[in-house]
Design a binder for these strands. Structure first.
Lengths: 144, 144
DNA sequence: CTCCGATAGTAGGATGTCCGACTATCCGGC
DNA sequence: GCCGGATAGTCGGACATCCTACTATCGGAG
């Protein structure tokens, strides 16, 4: 139970720091993650479903996240040319600028993990890996 | 950044499992934690502020949590006899029964950490300890 | 070529969390 | 004994997340 509490608290603390750092950009960590995902995508656009899959969140959460980002002018919705049911979220120029600046800020605070060196961060990853694998969240990078 | 993701996902996975296990009792982990806290308290009652302090959540979250527990008949609000501003949350008989049964169920699934043995759980605690200490969340047990 | 199950997104509702603002009460200093 | 700052809870609003239900479209079986 102590271990459970550790994970809960750690996440809570971390999320708090990250959200605070992102506040100047009017972003939350959830929205930041979505933007980064789009940035890393070759075309700068992804079907909403893909986003939910990568971030491991419910489709309705993606709709909500993209709604807000779109209202902020950081992404744009576009019908998926290859699937009439689908919608693509495409990062805008302003979105790309914002995510870049935000990333600089996050790096400056070591993403909230300033208390850890490379080794310590690797330990965190290793220790939690079992749990993620058991839940089907492969920490293995998947090819696009 | 990988380490950050690990923590976020681990918490998400864990919370999902715990909430699922608590569903039959109409409880969420947040409410369960509050009930446990009251159970462990000698008198079975605590000022709302104390609860927020222990669980490291905002006062408004406590109000919300206790509201729901009270509506479910698992706790009862009572004016604090030693502080006219304060309110005590007191666990009811039914609340005690529910938390006991729920705890049995959670134990049966190792609180979602069945993938870890004692050592593994200790590692989780140790690795995340730095982060919590740096944030002022003393993983040191405080006397009542 | 048509029909029906599977899939992509969205809408509505519940929960939990935070922040800022407000009320009521407490308490220490003058 | 009174007064003003500190403290306890609550309320309203913003976000994020999930679930269920619904619409529209896709795609394979017959």
């Amino acid at each position: 139970m102590t271990a459970v509490t550790s994970i809960m608290r750690a996440q809570q603390i971390l999320l708090g720091e990250l959200d605070a750092a992102l506040k100047p950009y009017e972003l939350t960590f959830a929205r930041y993650e979505a933007l980064v995902l789009l940035t890393f995508s070759s075309s700068g656009a992804l079907p909403l479903g893909k986003i939910g899959e990568r971030l491991m969140v419910h489709p309705t959460s993606v709709t909500n996240t993209i709604d807000r980002l779109e209202r902020q002018g950081l992404v744009r919705r576009r019908p998926n040319p290859r699937d009439g049911r689908g919608t693509l979220a495409e990062i805008t120029e302003r979105g790309a600028e914002v995510v870049e600046a935000a990333t600089r800020d996050l790096m400056a605070i070591d993403f909230g993990l300033g208390a850890y060196d490379e080794t310590g961060q690797a330990e965190i990853f290793d220790v939690l890996r079992h749990l993620r694998v058991a839940a089907g969240d492969f920490p293995v990078k998947e090819r696009r």
